[in-house]
């Protein structure tokens, strides 16, 4: 049983045919190029920290994440990141710089609601769910790993 009436279903079919589509191919290519570029820049930063003598998988990787987060946050503050995002879509949303953007954008905007319920609470509108699901799934997986190891 569908929750829609016959009339509603017909309308939805009708509009599906004529609704303008996003430029799928262009979007995908732009996401690939910009996402790839951000990762290549990340590789450069990683190599630089290794060159400075940091251990690759833990120290240099952590420093790279922190650097990229800073860059994403800074570009958001300057008002540049949303301009990149308009064209790059997932290319600038999926890298960790996009995670930083999702924190700064609401934090900045809700400053008008104060520093506690505005800035600090709204920071996590998007980032919060990412942390919740990331951390929870890592704990579940770690627990299964622990049980299997026994």
């Amino acid at each position: 049983m569908s929750k829609f009436s016959q009339e509603q279903k017909e309308y939805q079919e009708f509009v599906k045919r004529i609704r303008p589509k996003p430029p799928y191919l262009q979007n995908m290519v732009m996401a690939f190029l910009v996402g790839g570029l951000i990762c290549a820049i990340g590789q450069g930063i990683l190599n630089f920290y290794v060159f400075l003598g940091l251990e690759r998988t833990k120290e240099a990787a952590g420093a790279t994440s922190a650097t990229l987060v800073f860059l994403g946050a800074f570009l958001t503050g300057l008002g540049v990141y949303d301009e990149i995002g308009k064209r790059a879509g997932a290319g600038s949303i999926v890298p960790i710089t996009g995670f930083a953007n999702s924190i700064v954008a609401p934090a900045m905007e809700f400053k008008s609601e104060g520093y506690v319920f505005g800035v600090a609470a709204k920071m996590f509108v998007v980032a919060g769910p990412v942390l919740v699901y990331g951390i929870t799934s890592s704990v579940i997986i770690g627990f299964i790993y622990y049980l299997l190891k026994l």
Partner: peptide, 13 residues
Amino acid sequence: RFPLELGNQRPPT
């Protein structure tokens, strides 16, 4: 919708 500076794409609609 979203905060202004969030790097989202808008569909043509």
